[in-house]
Amino acid sequence: MISNGKHHAGSAGGGEGIPPPKDQDLMLDAWREVLAQVLHTRDNEWKQQLRAIKAESLAAVAEMRANVAETRSAMEDMIAKRLAQIREPADGARGELGPRGEPGPPGKIETVRAYVHGAVHYERDVVVHEGSTYMAKHDTARTPPHDDWQLIAARGRDAAMPKIMGTYREGESYSFLNIVALGGSSFVARTDDPGPCPGEGWQLIASAGRPGKQGQKGERGEQGQRGERGAVAPTILGWKIDRERYCATPIMSDNSEVEPLQLRALFEQFHDEAS
Rank of each mutant, 00 (worst) to 15 (best):
M1D: 11
I2L: 08
S3Y: 04
N4E: 11
N4H: 11
G5S: 02
H7M: 13
H7F: 14
A9T: 13
G13T: 04
G13K: 02
G15A: 08
I18Y: 10
P19L: 14
P20T: 07
P21V: 13
K22G: 14
Q24G: 05
W31V: 10
E33Q: 13
A36R: 13
R42Q: 15
D43W: 13
D43E: 10
N44W: 02
E45G: 15
E45C: 11
R51Q: 10
I53Q: 13
A55L: 11
E56A: 15
E56D: 15
S57M: 14
L58A: 14
A59E: 11
A62W: 03
E63W: 07
N67P: 04
N67S: 05
E70T: 05
T71G: 07
R72L: 11
A74H: 01
I79F: 12
R82I: 12
R82K: 06
R82T: 12
L83F: 08
L83Q: 09
A84I: 02
I86L: 15
P89Q: 07
D91N: 09
G95P: 05
G95Y: 02
G98D: 14
P99M: 09
G101Q: 06
G104E: 00
P105N: 06
P106G: 06
K108F: 11
K108M: 14
H117R: 05
H117P: 07
H117Q: 04
G118W: 00
Y122K: 15
E123W: 01
D125S: 14
D125C: 10
V127I: 13
E130H: 09
G131W: 00
T133H: 09
Y134W: 02
Y134I: 00
M135C: 12
A136V: 03
H138I: 01
H138K: 15
R142E: 15
D147P: 07
Q150D: 03
R155P: 12
G156K: 03
A159K: 01
A159F: 01
M161P: 07
M161I: 05
M161K: 06
I164T: 06
M165E: 02
T167A: 03
R169E: 08
R169M: 14
E170T: 08
G171I: 14
G171D: 03
S173Q: 15
S173P: 07
N178V: 07
I179R: 00
V180A: 00
A181S: 11
A181N: 04
G184F: 12
G184M: 11
G184E: 11
R190S: 03
D192Y: 07
P194Q: 04
P196D: 07
C197S: 08
C197Y: 06
E200F: 05
E200R: 08
E200I: 08
W202S: 08
I205D: 04
A206Q: 09
A206T: 01
G209H: 10
R210G: 09
P211F: 00
K213C: 04
G215L: 12
Q216V: 05
K217Y: 10
G221A: 13
Q223M: 10
Q223A: 14
G230P: 07
G230N: 05
G238F: 00
I241F: 08
D242L: 02
R243C: 05
E244K: 13
C247R: 15
C247G: 09
A248G: 12
A248V: 12
P250H: 03
P250T: 04
P250N: 01
I251A: 04
I251Y: 05
M252P: 09
D254K: 04
D254A: 01
E259I: 10
E259T: 15
L261F: 06
L261P: 06
L263E: 02
L266W: 06
D272N: 09
D272M: 08
S275A: 11
